[in-house]
């Protein structure tokens, strides 16, 4: 890979390669629909290496493409004998819509959502009505949605493990619409996630799972079975 950011860690030169999606996207110029499957090493700026398994669906503007990819993710997890997972979906677009009338506070609001710290929003010089509106949005978590696109997605997938949780946000520059996270309640870290993005004038949707976390999860599941949980 020639792209990426060069960095020195303990005197050794590394090519930081934090995100395969943006690199895959930069190589795809066509508008036709296709799925790209990949397994890639991801190197952080600290020189730490991880493996990521992912799929990108390109050139598909319809919600059916997103549905297909989410079904693929569900099948993939089930094939690993992971049944008790949840997929929480949030929307960057919905948040942006709610911030459209207070653009000067976007950064503080995003920071507050990232930490789930509503105290930061409380401090902002905005109306009490707006604060209530943002508070309600941050605490929206259900299996239905007033948003037409989300409601359509939920009705097409029909899986009780999918929730709309507006506190679910992934901060990568290319995500601009739906984003989601996959997790298992008994395990303290997300297994992966993904989202919808716009690239080269077309829409894409992708997900990635962290291979190391998947492996840790499998190990912790088997050790809990052998030794019992902390509870």
């Amino acid at each position: 890979m020639k792209e990426g950011l060069r960095t020195l860690v303990n005197g050794e030169l590394f090519l930081a390669h934090p995100d395969p999606t943006s690199q895959i996207l930069s190589h795809l110029k066509g508008q036709h629909a296709l799925n790209v499957f990949y397994c890639s090493e991801v190197l952080s700026l600290h020189g730490r290496s991880r493996w990521q398994i992912g799929v990108e669906r390109m050139g598909d503007e319809k919600i059916s493409g997103t549905v297909e990819l989410l079904r693929m993710l569900i099948q993939f997890l089930e094939s690993l004998w992971i049944q008790d997972f949840f997929i929480d979906i949030g929307s960057i677009k919905l948040w942006e819509n709610h911030m459209a009338d207070i653009p000067e506070h976007r950064q503080e609001i995003w920071r507050s959502i990232r930490q789930r710290n509503f105290g930061m929003i409380e401090e902002l010089p905005i109306s009490a009505k707006k604060k209530q509106e943002l508070w309600r949005l941050l605490n929206t978590r259900s299996q239905s949605s007033d948003d037409e696109e989300m409601a359509d997605l939920l009705s097409q997938i029909q899986d009780k493990r999918i929730f709309v949780d507006m506190g679910t946000i992934r901060f990568l520059p290319y995500y601009h619409e739906l984003v989601f996270e996959v997790y298992v309640p008994s395990f303290g870290a997300p297994l992966g996630g993904g989202g919808r993005y716009r690239v080269n004038g077309g829409l894409g949707f992708g997900f990635a799972l962290d291979a190391e976390i998947l492996s840790q999860f499998q190990n912790s599941a088997s050790s809990q079975t052998e030794a019992g949980s902390w509870d």
Binding site: F86, D88, R116, N139, R141, F163, D165, G167, Y183, V184, P185, F187, G188, A189, P190
Partner: peptide, 15 residues
């Protein structure tokens, strides 16, 4: 501090 998954798992209690 709140664990990211616990926030989902114990949503109402943690809020």
């Amino acid at each position: 501090m709140v664990n990211r998954i616990a926030q989902k798992k114990h949503f109402d209690r943690i809020n």
